[in-house]
Nucleic acid binder design. Structure first.
Lengths: 157, 157
DNA sequence: GGCAAGTGATTCACATGTCAATCAACTGAT
DNA sequence: ATCAGTTGATTGACATGTGAATCACTTGCC
């Protein structure tokens, strides 16, 4: 490869940084999810759905709105809700004003499970992730996320 | 909640930092994997397996050694190899010295696919991830990964 | 030699994710 | 009113991931 071809490739340090980042934060995520699972029998997907539902007016959301809110494919949400419904965490009811749609609603059991999970989950985030850093490092990390989002043009109008 | 209970919980800024980090780097990973898939019809799992195999002596590794090397469950590797074998990327052969074991070997087609994938894959890592940052930010990110690994006692003997 | 315990690999059941296809119900232009 | 096109939701086929169970072979110890 000539000099021209190398310019758009990472150096070995850069590549190592990428791999370290991915592998390290995979472990972080796994630890936090595993704590959630052990404390509350909830997956991170369950938690995301329950969080959105518990914040919703009347603990009810139209399925599509829910999918949009948590940025999931509708088919993904559909499958996930099916599993959560089997476990009694949510219920689905037909929608009066639009016969195609359906309302997803939080059951009492779902609300209970969610409320019991939040404090331990937030503790896990603090202990596993936040507590690893100095305030400066946390700021730096945030800057990095901002830089990526700008670079990839996320947050675009 | 009293003052004692709050000390081990993240502030809302800290929680926002966690969420931003997870969501942002999920997008990064998805972009890079999607480029790999489009350029080379390989998943990141395929790539990891092919990388390990192509670096191995004689393009052959004992299945368990491979699993240990890439830090996968053996059952995960087993299933993945099955799919890769169907696509002609690898082959498995019984092991002479230990009749329980098997050798995984890179086929010519697998080697071709891997070699064709590396440059574009590295370019994607550079363009999507590395190029988002200043050198200082990249250093900061690395420091953050080190801090986490120390905090979680990864890299322990 | 022979058996208990360990090891290598696969298999099973399941949860999770993507994408395309389906299907019914809505909506808007005519 | 009608019908093309959109939208809401589910389904199916598959890839991927985990953990437990299985099964065959190997090893260590007697």
């Amino acid at each position: 490869m000539g000099a021209a071809g190398r310019r758009n490739l990472p150096t070995s340090e850069e590549l190592a940084a990428w791999r370290a980042h991915v592998e390290t934060f995979d472990v972080v995520r796994a630890r936090i999810e595993s704590r959630l699972q052990q404390d509350s029998k909830l997956s991170s997907g369950d938690y995301k759905v329950l969080l959105a539902l518990s914040e919703a007016d009347g603990r009810t959301v139209r399925s599509s709105d829910l999918a949009a809110h948590i940025e999931w494919e509708r088919s993904r949400l559909s499958g996930h809700l099916g599993r959560m419904e089997k476990r009694g965490l949510v219920r689905r009811e037909p929608c009066e004003d639009d016969a195609r749609g359906s309302h997803v609603l939080l059951t009492d059991e779902g609300a209970r499970a969610f409320h019991a999970s939040t404090i331990p989950h937030l503790q896990a985030i603090k202990e596993v992730f936040i507590d690893a850093f100095t305030p400066q490092q946390l700021t730096d990390l945030n800057e990095a996320a901002v830089a990526i989002r700008r670079h990839l043009d996320l947050d675009a109008p």
